[in-house]
């Protein structure tokens, strides 16, 4: 697992039924592209997050394939329509097989 990986998510605490809310996510991750060389001239192996998904109450909201050109600490901001109270589940998939998760509840006001 890459060092210092820490997911951060911002979800409004509540929303009106049917409201479209903005979700912001950021995960600290070096996103080593696999193109760079170290001081000895040997290739630094690729180590990135290659997929990010968000589900709301089990229904997929967004599913993103990430490639090596994406820079350190990838940030995604997107909208989701909230029809009922529930939970947003965010999942990041690392090249090394690690999976990082975060869950945020939202209420209907």
């Amino acid at each position: 697992m890459a060092n210092d990986v820490k997911p951060r998510v911002k979800v409004p605490k509540s929303a009106a039924a049917g409201e479209v809310v903005t979700l912001k996510t950021l995960i600290s991750h070096p996103m080593e592209s696999g193109q760079r060389k170290n001081a000895d001239g040997t290739l630094i192996p690729r180590s990135i997050i290659n997929r990010f998904t968000c589900d709301f109450n089990g229904v997929n909201v967004i599913d993103i394939a990430i490639d090596p050109a994406v820079s350190t600490n990838p940030y995604f901001e997107f909208d989701a329509k909230v029809d009922a109270a529930g939970e947003f589940k965010f999942t990041w998939y690392d090249d090394d097989g690690s999976v990082y998760e975060d869950v945020k509840p939202i209420e209907i006001a």
């Binding site: 210092d4 820490k6 951060r8 912001k24 600290s28 600490n73």
Partner: peptide
Amino acid sequence: DFDNPAMVFVDQGLD
């Protein structure tokens, strides 16, 4: 604070 990119480094300092 979520949009402030420095908070990533603050988190590392807190750790």
